[in-house]
């Protein structure tokens, strides 16, 4: 069974159609990349998958592990194992990163009928995961994303990913704002989580990230449609030729 099946997905925001019929399957254990120019609908796709109500699904369906995803509230999707690494992570003043993540993890565990982690177990877990993504431990006690640099925010997203261990991880331009060392660390963190079960949807502008997180499949999204699908070499091709090639199809 596919982890994620998207059929003829149409979505709009404020009455403007952004996604114009997306079809996409992600099998367990696979890494899919979506590339495309600005405004092609990459972020909209990620928000629709996560259940942001400001995006309206006007047609089509999404099945996640056989279930109708569109029936689930955003927090239910998260508890079912969907994680979105945000392009612009928000700040939550006064709420420590640790406290936030503990609330998140325990909400997810409770939903799954697992025991909540006690303070010691939790601390041990986050310290260990912070190390794998080289997140400075001082950031654990700081309020969520407040005063973090752009790079620290993205690293924090991948840190949360490592702690919450989702089934399907959607990374929305996690590479933007990262220098090359940070990019490598983030990629290492993601690669360490790859296994036979977990699926990834990696959204990016640039081929650079895909040198480190090598995808199984690459899709090109232009003007709300997937215009081409191929292997990892497609990304390299795009790097050379740009998206101009697809302008005709997009029009």
């Amino acid at each position: 069974m596919a982890l994620l099946e998207i059929r003829n997905l149409h979505a709009s925001v404020d009455g403007t159609e952004i996604l114009k019929g997306i079809d996409l399957d992600i099998e367990p254990g696979k890494v899919h990349a979506i590339m495309g120019p600005n405004g092609s609908g990459k972020s909209t796709l990620s928000k629709v998958l996560a259940g942001d109500e400001r995006y309206e699904v006007t047609a089509g369906e999404i099945r996640y592990r056989g279930r109708n995803l569109l029936e689930l509230a955003p927090e239910e999707r998260a508890r079912e194992g969907i994680f979105l690494g945000f392009q612009y992570p928000v700040e939550i003043p006064g709420v420590s990163n640790t406290y936030f993540l503990k609330a998140a993890l325990n909400a997810i565990r409770k939903y799954r009928g697992q025991e909540e982690l006690d303070a010691m177990e939790f601390l041990q877990l986050i310290r260990e995961r912070a190390k794998t993504v080289k997140l400075d431990e001082s950031l654990l006690q700081r309020p969520v994303n407040e005063g973090f640099s752009g790079g620290e925010k993205k690293r924090n997203e991948v840190f949360q990913l490592a702690v919450l261990e989702p089934m399907l991880a959607i990374l929305d331009e996690t590479d933007s704002g990262l220098d090359i060392d940070a990019l490598r660390t983030v990629a290492d963190g993601v690669n360490a989580m790859r296994d036979d079960e977990r699926g990834f949807l990696v959204i990016t502008h640039y081929q650079r990230l895909l040198e480190h997180i090598v995808p199984d499949t690459v899709h090109v999204l232009v003007n709300g449609r997937i215009v081409q699908t191929g292997g990892k070499e497609l990304a390299e091709e795009l790097e050379r030729s740009g998206y101009a090639l697809f302008d005709d199809e997009a029009a």
Partner: peptide, 8 residues
């Protein structure tokens, strides 16, 4: 929404 997306 950010909190929702983390299961809260």
């Amino acid at each position: 929404f950010y909190c929702n997306q983390r299961g809260i």
